[in-house]
Design a protein around this nucleic acid. Sequence first.
DNA 1: ATCAAATCAATGTGATCGCATCGTTATGAC
DNA 2: GTCATAACGATGCGATCACATTGATTTGAT
Lengths: 207, 207
Amino acid sequence: MNRRTRGPGARHEERREQIADAVLAIVAGRGLQAVSQTEVAARAGVSAGRVQHYFPAKKELIEAAFDRANARSTARIRRLVGGDPLTAPPREALTVVLTQLVPHDPETRTHLRVRQSFTALALSDEAIAGRMRARYAEFHRELAVLVRRAQDAGAAPAGLDPRTAAVRLAALAEGLAYYVLIGITEPEDAREQILAAIADVHGERPA
Amino acid sequence: MNRRTRGPGARHEERREQIADAVLAIVAGRGLQAVSQTEVAARAGVSAGRVQHYFPAKKELIEAAFDRANARSTARIRRLVGGDPLTAPPREALTVVLTQLVPHDPETRTHLRVRQSFTALALSDEAIAGRMRARYAEFHRELAVLVRRAQDAGAAPAGLDPRTAAVRLAALAEGLAYYVLIGITEPEDAREQILAAIADVHGERPA
DNA sequence: ATCAAATCAATGTGATCGCATCGTTATGAC
DNA sequence: GTCATAACGATGCGATCACATTGATTTGAT
């Protein structure tokens, strides 16, 4: 129907995303504690009043930014896989999803910095924690499906429980990702380890 | 010589540790952003002036708390292993060091919450980041020594590069630890996965 | 005993924060 | 056209923060 329901402009969702993106940029650069109405408004190139209008409470602003980050991440994965990861070739999908977790370009680096800030916030903010748990539940479930399909396709002999293998892969990838982020591991090394772990799931011997 | 160099009491280091511990308690409970002079003073049971006296700048207070957390962690590991981990039976030391990373009692849970807060801070605070890198360098080096000794002792056939294996083990353990912390993985499951990974390093087939 | 330095508490200060409030403007419904 | 209302900008307010300042007190050294 109407693209604009009310008021001037009224590209409501668009504006919200623009502001949420500004929050993410600040978080990536200087952390969550640097997020304030003034800071966000300046970064987004809008008035502080507008920020407050779209997000009456700071809590909502932060949560919107978190959701926005997840949406961006999901979109990026889908773009790289070329569709729904669950219907893509399982091994390729596994490789993309897991290697995208480790920072290797500005975009992934920024995303992981943001994510790391929110993981800390989740420890003292139940609203974020709930979203985080839901996000991980979906993530691990999706990974488990991929692992199972990969096992079925390959010549996996015994076959580890898909769910367990999925969690193991994710944990390894996330741990390595943080090491890369703080600069104690090279992106290439992390990637190699992840590929080896994926090969292991396929019944091949890891390097 | 003199335990007290100057002034009343002058149990300088002791007081600093007491205040640093208060900081850690606050971080564990409500996160880094809840740390303020007033809050710390109240938690430590001292005047706000004293906090300021021992830590003229907040930056120093935070860094002292970080160092304190590391010292506590090191002491706990040594206590559990019963001496220097590097001279203990390698497989036992590996098991202790890695399984202690995942939260399974109030102490380890608190420690990991604190650690998680600091990992986020390290992304926007170079002083903390430097300390963090140094800490990990030592941690991974120590793990690598243990892995090498474990490989020598066991019947490991080929033998993965000890350094690579060490990083892999640590990454897996830390990833699992965070999953446990936010409640999407059970402590027992995480422990099992870690034990399996250690067995793998020893040349045994993982479960 | 005296003194200098360390310790400590109390108060002040400027800045910043989240949020409330108020007034103006722009827009769509009628 | 008019009217209700969303959109928006600007300003105000109370709270809190890190840090500075001040002054009193306690100790060890001499």
